[in-house]
Design a protein around this nucleic acid. Structure first.
Lengths: 216, 216
DNA sequence: AACTGATATGACCAACTGGTCATGTTTCAG
DNA sequence: CTGAAACATGACCAGTTGGTCATATCAGTT
């Protein structure tokens, strides 16, 4: 899917310089999105010359792709870890733990999460479709795997539509993280910058609703 | 919350000219978002001179605010209509009809919906917080009203957390519309440009999950 | 016809963008 | 010590942006 968008020069750089450039790039893209990101600001932040940037990467898009690859790798790793760590537990417990892991990721990597949101809602990012498809595929595989395992163990109500269930989980999960990351996006949960205890209580309430439903 | 961002001159304009300008502005902002929107393109689309635009509005932000007000009014009206039309029906039926109305709105006003998405994920839109708060408040009041009515009639499982339920509804609703409007945003439902019959089936499946839950 | 205030116009401006490139500087093998 | 390849640099470029303004045109009143 991705060919290497960085030049050899970049990989030969001293590690701390690479780090500085990647840090600056991640910050700039996460703060500004793709189009609004300014390479002039980026090089200033990284403390390198404009020309050097073009020795490391072919163009703006190349930098963006490189950053995105790193971000995606980080997400993938987290998903795998949670999946393995909860392998033998009950489905709804796994949901809770997945949500908690998501919130943790978001606090540890706020810029990666912000980058993801930017991609999601800025059409005309080059290759945006590829990027989004990759992320969604990961999420879909993750929840799909959890769902099938749960069904195999008889933890699910028979006859429910798997695509619908997958959609529901993805929607709630995604929105929960958004609400925890951004103000104004949750109606009444006040998740934004809430203490961990509050967040965990909300997670339990939500999973309870998913498990038992709303109806009397 | 909003003072009038358009100049008198604009309101004195012949209706068809106003229409042309507003059409062009809505299209440009919906397609490009706030920052990416180009006033040069806008005036070209509207068929007016650059200077004229600045006779009608004080600046770019003023145009944006004006467009947003119109869009919000349109959303508000739709919500009120659905609410009144379904007043006496069962809560879960109302949910289904709300979702269907949402999808209908989205097909009829794709640019308004796109505008909303753009606002949601572009920090640094001027007064973005005001805008988002206004939208969320409407959604929250709508679902809150439905929920309280349902509880009053004993249609809800006792003891469920209202904020959590509200969050759940808002999340599913919002994501469902997003999935219907954009490709790549739904994992497996394939709502994007799906025929109405498919969409309605998915709505029923989803509401069923919300009603009865996932657990065996 | 003459005057007047509202409206229309597009050349123009400073600021900024992504990207280039001639010219230095550093590194290191022979 | 020499030479050449790798790397660094920032002035520079064409293009675009939001916004201005002197000037022209129009509509309506006297």
């Amino acid at each position: 899917m991705f060919q290497e968008p960085a030049r050899d020069t970049f990989s030969h750089l001293p590690a701390d310089k690479q780090e500085r450039v990647l840090e600056a790039a991640l910050t700039e893209f996460a703060d500004q999105g793709y189009h609004q990101a300014s390479l002039n600001r980026l090089v200033a932040k990284a403390g390198i010359a404009k020309g050097s940037l073009y020795q490391y990467f072919p163009n703006k898009e190349g930098i963006f792709r490189y950053i995105f690859q790193i971000a995606l790798k980080s997400v993938r790793q987290t998903l795998v870890e949670v999946k393995e760590a909860t392998q033998d537990e009950n489905f709804f417990i796994r949901l809770e733990k997945s949500l908690r892991a998501g919130v943790r990721f978001l606090k540890q990597h706020p810029r990666i999460y912000s980058l993801y949101l930017k991609i999601q809602f800025d059409r005309q990012i080059p290759f945006r479709d590829e990027f989004l498809a990759a992320v969604r595929r990961h999420a879909g595989e993750y929840f799909g795997s959890l769902l099938r395992r749960a069904r195999g163990r008889g933890e699910l109500r028979p006859g429910i539509s798997e695509p619908a269930a997958l959609f529901l989980l993805d929607a709630v999960f995604d929105r929960f993280l958004q609400a925890a990351a951004l103000p104004y996006l949750d109606v009444t949960l006040d998740l934004h910058q809430a203490p961990e205890e509050t967040i965990n209580r909300r997670i339990r309430e939500l999973v309870d609703l998913l498990r038992e439903g709303l109806a009397a």
